[in-house]
């Protein structure tokens, strides 16, 4: 029963987690939070990860109540993500693997989200909606690949939310999306926003520029409140996401849907997806902030699957890459 540790640092979260045969032994995380109105820059984020790596690692080992001898394999996020933060985390993982004398595995971040979702929810063969700050994809498994049926043709949904939160100067703590969700609960006027769905693909850049434009005007004239804007944005973009997911389910004949990625912990999105699933006699699987938001255990879990199916990464291939598509990975651990 291999015990695997995972290091995640592809964006503004540094997470380290340990998995042993489907059990999460520890999964601490430290988030780099910027002031309202500001996004996170690669350099500062990398610095954050370097500064906190050892503390988070210590906390992780302590929570799991393990010593280095108990670890069989070290995993790290190889990509996709932001260059500098990825590299700063990979350096830590490489050092630890060498110190502890265990093999290392580079993991695709998107696959981490999917495998963590499958582990926690026990969904068997779901259509997956992967929604985060950098990705928006509708995925289904077939013939050894997670195949991308639909995705955004411009910006990711989380990026759209984060940039909108910056316009309204909402807090980034714990995340912009979370604060939009709270504000939306108090909104009730539905503003007409562009709704752009193309088959199983979506586009958000038009909505963002439109709402950037109307936001100031409508707020100034008192036509609506910031809460109404948050409400309208959520209702519109989540409807688009549920629609393309449903199209993929109809197309694949699937009766299960799993939501993963940071935006996936949004309760309104889960509620809408649940209503869609119910109408089709399908089942919804979702998780909460602990496992939806980037974390170390998800990298450990995907790595555990790779490790037990016989894979490790040769030392001279333990680099990082900013672009790494979900469908590039050969899934050796599923039939």
């Amino acid at each position: 029963m291999p015990t695997v540790i995972g290091f995640e640092g592809s964006a503004n979260k540094l997470g380290i987690g340990i998995i042993r045969d489907g059990e999460v032994l520890a999964n601490p995380r430290h988030t780099y939070i910027t002031p309202p109105g500001q996004g996170f820059l690669p350099r500062d984020t990398a610095k954050h990860h370097q500064e906190h790596a050892l503390d988070v690692l210590k906390q992780c080992m302590k929570e799991a109540n393990l010593t280095p001898q108990d670890i069989d394999c070290v995993c790290y996020t190889k990509g996709p993500g932001m260059g500098a933060p990825l590299v700063s985390t990979a350096v830590v993982a490489r050092t630890i693997a060498q110190l502890w004398g265990v093999p290392i595995i580079g993991v695709n971040h998107c696959i981490g989200h999917i495998e963590m979702g499958r582990l926690i929810t026990k969904a068997e063969n779901p259509v997956v909606l992967y929604v985060s700050g950098g990705n928006t994809q509708v995925i289904a498994y077939s013939q050894r690949r997670y195949r991308i049926f639909g995705e955004t043709i411009d910006i990711a949904v989380g990026n759209c939310l984060d940039r909108f939160a910056r316009i309204l100067k909402l807090s980034n703590d714990p995340s912009p999306g979370y604060n939009i969700e709270q504000a939306a609960k108090k909104g009730n006027i539905l503003i007409d926003l562009p709704y752009v769905v193309k088959g199983m693909d979506v586009s958000f850049s038009g909505i963002l520029s439109y709402i950037e434009d109307v936001a100031h005007k409508k707020l100034k004239s008192g036509e609506c409140t910031p809460e109404d804007l948050c409400f309208s944005l959520q209702e519109t973009i989540f409807a688009m996401l549920v629609e393309i997911t449903e199209r993929a389910m109809a197309h694949c004949g699937s009766q299960e849907v799993l939501i993963v990625g940071g935006v996936g912990c949004n309760v309104r999105l889960q509620e809408m997806m649940g209503a869609m699933a119910k109408e089709r006699n399908a089942k919804l699987f979702a998780t909460d902030m602990r496992f939806c938001i980037d974390n170390g255990a998800m990298i450990a879990q995907a790595g555990w699957e790779m490790f037990t199916s016989g894979q490790t990464t040769p030392w001279d291939e333990t680099w990082c890459t900013q672009r790494y598509r979900t469908d590039e990975v050969e899934v050796t651990w599923r039939d």
Binding site: A140, S142, Q143, R145, R147, I148, F149, G150, E151, I153, K198, G199, M200, D201, H251, C252, D327
Partner: peptide, 16 residues
């Protein structure tokens, strides 16, 4: 172009 792109993804993911 996007119309063809939508087809390409649907086509290749449905029919490996």
């Amino acid at each position: 172009g996007v119309d063809l792109y939508v087809l390409e993804k649907a086509f290749l993911s449905t029919h490996p």
